[in-house]
């Protein structure tokens, strides 16, 4: 059928891409794509707008940087540890935030993320304004040297695919069905006997952990963990990526992330370099007003109408 063919095609493109495009740019795209897919799990499928996902992305970036640079842990272990840390942070933030809905949920997540941000500014192990620089990329169990950009690319691609698979599986699982029901009609889900808060919390924690996986991987790619990763701009950007690509579609956020990162890179060197936030703002408005389903959502809707 069409779907497996599309996925195989996309996979082939991803495998061949570093021979055409700059691998570091592609790795950046993959990290943000994973971040957006993780975010989509809670916004698109949980119906909860978190405005604090930078805390998980940035928090994991620091944990990973610290683990590799100071503790000298092997790279995969550092990434795994950072993912776990983001999950634990997700439990703490989620347990407080899911008690409220809508704007209040967004505000609680934002407030807690800002607290994390100021913690990262003042804490001794984050390097303050300088961040953690020169994080060693290390190797894969001493076998594959990750200093090599091409090796690193395939490592990042593997991480992205694992994360993407976890999101896709979660959405199409017994748990995913319950989550969809809660998003569709929460009082009804309660009246059928579901403790909706526990399902929302699990979705939130999964989303936070995968956002952490993305942040930790980004640290290894750029050998840098900085305040930018934990800034609320990052929380806003991931909303934009998800909306642009297609909220509640599985590939949508990844495509949205690719578009935004590409745009940022192109604009950064051109005459519009000072205007990047304005351009992103215009895209955001256009997206919300004109094509709310996002790129993938609109294509799906078009295909459904036409066939």
């Amino acid at each position: 059928m069409i779907r497996p063919a599309l996925y195989l095609g996309a996979l082939a493109l991803l495998i061949l891409a570093p021979f055409v495009l700059y691998p570091v740019f592609l790795m950046k795209v993959l990290c943000f794509a994973l971040f957006a897919c993780a975010f989509n799990l809670i916004l698109g499928y949980g119906g909860l707008l978190s405005f604090g996902h930078a805390a998980f992305f940035g928090g994991a970036a620091y944990v990973c940087g610290h683990a590799l640079e100071v503790w000298g842990l092997p790279t995969p272990v550092g990434i795994l540890l950072a993912t776990l840390a983001a999950g634990v942070l997700g439990v703490l933030v989620g347990a407080l935030a899911i008690r409220r809905q809508g704007i209040y949920f967004a505000m609680i997540t934002l407030a807690l993320a800002q607290m994390c941000y100021f913690f990262f500014i003042t804490a001794p192990f984050t390097g303050g304004e300088n961040g953690l620089q020169g994080v060693p990329r290390g190797s894969l169990f001493g076998l594959v040297n990750l200093q090599n950009d091409l090796n690193m690319y395939y490592f990042v691609l593997a991480i992205f695919l694992i994360g993407y698979f976890i999101v896709a599986r979660t959405v199409h699982s017994p748990f995913g069905q319950v989550l969809r029901a809660i998003r569709d009609n929460e009082p009804r889900a309660v009246s059928l006997g579901y403790d909706v808060d526990r399902y929302k919390l699990l979705a939130f924690v999964l989303s936070a952990a995968l956002a952490g996986l993305a942040g930790a991987t980004k640290t290894v790619v750029f050998q840098l963990a900085s305040l930018t990763d934990a800034h609320w701009h990052m929380s806003g950007e991931v909303v934009l990526m998800t909306l642009l690509g297609g909220l509640g579609t599985i590939p949508g956020p990844a495509i949205g992330a690719a578009l935004i990162v590409t745009l940022q890179n192109k604009l950064a060197t051109g005459p519009l370099s000072a205007w990047v936030p304005v351009v992103l703002g215009v895209i955001f408005v256009a997206c919300v007003i004109a094509f709310r389903r996002g790129v993938v959502g609109e294509i799906q809707a078009f295909l459904r109408r036409s066939f």
Binding site: S173, F175, Q177, V178, A181, L192, L202, L206
Partner: peptide
Amino acid sequence: RVALQPRLGTTFHFWRPDSCL
């Protein structure tokens, strides 16, 4: 099916395919 799901005891299983429903 959502109303029937609790009897399977897998409502938190995010790692299983929904074909098990």
